[in-house]
């Protein structure tokens, strides 16, 4: 058993606190994603609502903003903010602040687009029918419009959360010590004792990301299926 573990490089995980360190690294990545997700959801809902008001100036700005996010890889945005902000404004951002700023910038655009889509997808008829039935404005929103919106929005925004968690793996490229970087350190430190550690450690990292994202994707898929025909 031990030789088998060693052959595939899983033995390093049981040495000292290696597994705990790896989980700690995952914690760093998750902390960044949770912060960015929360900021994105709040700002995204606000921007999404603003975009449906039909103000041409807001729409033009929002459009440019969404196109920038659509075209620029998150990695490029990360570089622009992390290296560019220092150069251009003399700001000395820590890598963590820079990554949270970038992921929020990106997530807000995605969220706003989802909110706008779900608001626009509710037909005008629904609103008029509710009025014809004698519901007042508050009732119309509470019982007719918002429940439909939530059903369209929730599965998609949960999906966005998994995408944001996956994207946080990029932060190792600007020097944050997260799960991949910790993995590399463990492999380096055990180069002699267990030469095959790269397989075991990276397979573990792969699996760790999977067990974080898979349940969230399942939830999103389940909600989508459940609400599909009741929209």
């Amino acid at each position: 058993m031990n030789t088998l573990l060693q052959q595939f490089g899983f033995d390093v995980l049981f040495k000292g606190t290696n597994m705990l360190r790896l989980l700690g690294g995952l914690g760093v990545a998750l902390k960044i994603s949770i912060l960015s997700v929360s900021i994105s959801i709040v700002l995204g809902i606000l921007l999404g609502i603003l975009m449906t008001l039909g103000n041409p100036l807001i729409n033009a700005i929002a459009r440019v903003y969404l196109e920038i996010v659509r075209f620029m890889p998150q990695m490029v945005l990360l570089f622009l903010v992390y290296f560019g902000a220092t150069k251009a404004f003399g700001l000395n951002l820590s890598a963590q602040t820079a990554s949270i700023a970038v992921f929020s910038f990106w997530g807000t655009a995605e969220m706003a687009d989802l909110v706008r889509g779900s608001l626009n997808s509710i037909s005008r008829l629904q609103y008029e029918t509710a009025q014809a039935l004698g519901l007042n404005r508050a009732q119309t929103y509470l019982y007719v419009l918002i429940p439909q919106m939530v059903r369209r929005l929730l599965p998609l925004s949960i999906n966005l959360v998994t995408r944001m968690i996956k994207t946080t793996s990029l932060v190792m490229m600007i020097g944050i010590v997260e799960v991949l970087k910790v993995g590399q350190q463990i492999i380096e430190a055990n180069r002699k004792a267990s030469p095959n550690a790269a397989f075991g450690v990276f397979a573990t990292v792969f699996f760790l990301y999977f067990i974080v994202c898979f349940p969230i994707s399942m939830l999103s898929g389940y909600l989508e299926k459940r609400w599909e025909n009741k929209g």
Partner: peptide, 15 residues
């Protein structure tokens, strides 16, 4: 679908 490309690449390239 539930893992980042970066992690997949590390696994394929180093693992």
């Amino acid at each position: 679908r539930n893992t980042p490309l970066l992690v997949q690449l590390f696994f394929l390239y180093f693992g």
